[in-house]
Write a protein that binds this DNA or RNA. Sequence first.
DNA 1: ATCATAAAGTTGTATATACAACTTTTAAAA
DNA 2: TTTTAAAAGTTGTATATACAACTTTATGAT
Lengths: 139, 139
Amino acid sequence: MEFNNLATADPRTCISGKVMRLNRITANIFRKYLSPFNITDSQLTVLFILSKMGGKKQKELSDIMVMEKSTLNRNLQRLVERGLLTKDEFPLIQATQAGKKLANEMVPEWQKAMNEIQNLLGNEGEQALDLVLHQLQNN
Amino acid sequence: MEFNNLATADPRTCISGKVMRLNRITANIFRKYLSPFNITDSQLTVLFILSKMGGKKQKELSDIMVMEKSTLNRNLQRLVERGLLTKDEFPLIQATQAGKKLANEMVPEWQKAMNEIQNLLGNEGEQALDLVLHQLQNN
DNA sequence: ATCATAAAGTTGTATATACAACTTTTAAAA
DNA sequence: TTTTAAAAGTTGTATATACAACTTTATGAT
């Protein structure tokens, strides 16, 4: 049987495949530093944002992170269950003192992860990543 | 309480956070085109690779995709269950005729997804993505 | 040929992700 | 103030992801 379409397509050029692979590479590096705190990449992103920028509504977080609202809800649940976030002032989600304390404690390890990745990327690579994001989000 | 570390860290600079957001953006675009075939990004990547490059061992696929072997195993299981891949010539994984036929049929929609993303990225953005991957994988 | 070790593959488990459908809250109109 | 509609938030479900621990297969030494 003839597969003309397949003959013209090259899976190595697939943007989605490249980005998923990129995601796994960076996730593997960050996980090395974050797993001792028993917290994931996504959870840390949420905790960092709320610890730095104060209380946010879920919709606001969802938009900032470009994350589906049900996915965000699940991430928030786990952080609330651990006492790191609170919904006491609904609809605002806020970091608790324990959450801010943990985020504060994690910064040195997060910085190590950043250093490792930045060493691999180089300035040029880091700027390239920002360009990619800028093209996709501001067009 | 004072959070000195938090004061110096900016979550917006987090490479992992940026890449996860990038991944969601590109995944959302590709999903629009792939979901009518009831196949996911990851499954398509596997099916494309095997349809184009012939049978591979799981370890080989795992290395090409930089995917954890248990994750790959799960993806393969679903494709085997659907009759799109076969392990009849273990340890080789191969696309079946049905799998190659489906991959062939999907190419036009995949190409549309690629066109939409390439229009957003521009040549500069696409080259930037390749640079990022190159820096992370070849250092 | 056999044995021991390493590598590859599989499975249990937990978390992440998103869709669809639902419930609750908010906002606007009457 | 009440009603209606829209928006936001929640939950059920399926697939993706990876770790740890296991089983199976392959390889090298004897």
